[in-house]
Design a binder for these strands. Structure first.
Lengths: 259, 259
DNA sequence: TTTCATTGTATCATATTGCGATACAATGTA
DNA sequence: TACATTGTATCGCAATATGATACAATGAAA
């Protein structure tokens, strides 16, 4: 390796990086894990896994069930979201407006931010109809598969959004989740034209999603406000008439100032 | 150090533990930090801080503003809460019931769990009146200072709760926050008698809190359902008449089964 | 504008830490 | 009961992480 590479290496602490991989082994499908499962999911050596799991337990990040010897996330995981949400000025700015919108519409209201090729939900105001997964802050889903992601993409320069549509990953959440990149391109162009994005059946069957981008002071998108409703009770026309105007008003009022 | 101490030491990875301290340096008052501030807040050597910050940046946990050279939490912080919330069966069980209660009462509804001498909020259903801090999952506050904490304590055996009241820390959030342990003891005894806890002016002036414990299958408390309302619009009598019955019904319906 | 203080970056000799191989215990399954 | 899998404990050793240090960059005060 070159001198430049070597320079990078001496500022990188491998033990920390490996330990963080244990934290990332837990997700919506892996609530608790034993040492062997942790080693498998992280690709780490068994002894290393034992050391890192023990350290995370002693520092309070993992709880250990002494009977089953399985580890699970502790409250410290939740506390990290608390620190994140305080550090994100858009969240502070948006929260009261999202709550107001939720009160007005009586439907699920979210705010998501672009993160690589995904969006991450940073504010979630649930209603009666909201599934558990859809109530949780921190959920990450592919941008191309969501109205929120498409609303954000729609505000990027044309060549940039075209590259995103061609290259970013897709995931199938329902039998109807769109995997057709041409179709997604059409939907993003439509969103660029309308100023909001519309989706149906993407994450949940019979669920309509509509999202509007939040534009930063620099003209770049920073987030999207999203509303989801049941297709059993709503049509696109009704959504455009009764929800979209308020959604756009809310999104437009959440423009973060220059720091 | 004895052989037993040495045994413990070789399974503890200091570099990981130190790196985690950097993550914990961010909170509601520290949204972004430079290297010197990180070193101060963590007690780590300047070079170590540089290495850990660089590693957390490269692994995606911290974002770095190249202009100001300051670090801030990334979406990975929020994602950790997502993993935690899936791993906590009480949260999954409770969420729809809390949403229903919120719809019925139109006020702020939370669920908090005991964590050491604190409570940590793991579900938050805000309303129009809710302050930003009170909308955030992962917030940690001293148990003795909150109706939720007292509701939980009230269900512990008498000697155990007495020890907690005598020893656990208190924090003053408002000029009216109770620091009188005798008074807290009275309030906890009252909660033991009533089955719910009542507070006023503790975290926010002119805010009334009322909480009911959620008891696990083993008879131990696991969490508390909490409602907060404005003292401008509510009295204790009115809360006891219009909120407490529904609060108790909700708390009683969230009893996690034996695993 | 200059000078000084503070913060950030880069480097290196070295000691200590963390590694991974291994043995054995405990638990689960057939 | 026997075997497979998982978890725990140990140790020799190489590589990592340490912290001291020098210097660059930036900010603040005179």
């Amino acid at each position: 390796m070159s001198t430049a590479d070597r320079k990078q290496d001496t500022l990188f602490v491998n033990s920390l990086a490996k330990g963080l991989r244990l934290l990332e082994a837990f997700d919506e499908e892996h609530h608790s894990l034993g040492l062997s499962e942790l080693a498998k999911r992280t690709g780490l050596d068994k002894s290393a896994t034992q050391r890192f799991a023990n350290t995370l337990h002693q520092t309070g990040y993992l709880m250990k069930d002494e009977a089953t010897r399985r580890f699970r996330p502790s409250h410290k995981f939740a506390e990290m979201a608390y620190a994140y949400l305080w550090s994100d000025p858009v969240v502070q700015l948006a929260m009261p407006k999202l709550i107001e919108l939720s009160g007005r519409l009586g439907e699920t209201i979210n705010m998501a931010e672009l993160s690589g090729s995904d969006i991450v939900y940073v504010a979630r105001i649930p209603c009666q109809r909201t599934t558990f997964a859809a109530t949780l802050v921190g959920r990450r889903v592919p941008a191309l598969n969501t109205s929120g992601g498409r609303a954000i993409l729609a505000t990027l320069p044309e060549t940039e959004r075209r590259a995103c549509i061609e290259n970013w990953p897709l995931t199938r959440f329902t039998p109807e989740t769109t995997q057709d990149r041409d179709r997604i391109s059409e939907l993003v162009e439509e969103a660029a034209h309308l100023g909001y994005s519309f989706s149906r059946n993407e994450l949940i069957l019979k669920e309509i999603g509509v999202a509007a981008p939040i534009i930063g002071a620099d003209g770049r998108p920073v987030a999207a406000v999203h509303c989801s409703v049941s297709a059993y009770h709503w049509t696109r026309e009704k959504v455009e008439q009764d929800i979209v105007p308020f959604l756009l008003d809310t999104a437009n009022s959440i423009t973060p100032s220059v720091r």
